[in-house]
Amino acid sequence: MSKRIAYCAILITLAMIFSYVEVLIPVNFGIPGVKIGLANIVILIGLYVIKIREVLMISVIRIILSGVLFGNIMSIAYSMAGGMLSLVVMAIMKRCKGFSMNGVSIAGGVVHNIGQLIVAMLVIKNFRLVVYLPVLLIAGAVTGFLIGILSSGIVPAVEREMEKHTF
């Protein structure tokens, strides 16, 4: 049990460091608000190596903590909508046959952006924001793909380490 807690703590820390790195070095896609979403590497890997409820907990805590540290209450709302929606979709996609981590990650990235767009529309009460949907779809697919590539490279190493320290 204590080992599981330690693992979760490490993953939360890692996700927060990724969030911070992203604040420091924003990868600019030329579109305001589009980020690569490095912290999603942790969430995606988590989906493959630990239990889903632990991933959920890591995601929620990471969003609240990094929102408090680097953002504000609104950024927590945006991240929470995107993060929760993408986590649910990624968990479902993972159960579907025929998709590897890349596909799961692409779906997660796209849904993440859709979630944030919905919150943005609710916040400013203007549904014309839907004009940003095409850009966000493409951006989500591209960033999701990149995160998928990175994560599928990391997972084997994580699994090896976890086998050494069995729970």
């Binding site: 025929g98 590897s100 890349n102 692409i106 796209v110 949907l133 095409p134 779809l137 493409i138 989500g140």
Partner: peptide, 23 residues
Amino acid sequence: MKKKDIILGLTIITVGLILMLMM
């Protein structure tokens, strides 16, 4: 990378591009 991943990615990008063009 599986076939379905590629199909999913390309479908989303195509839909995005078509919507962009329409706009």
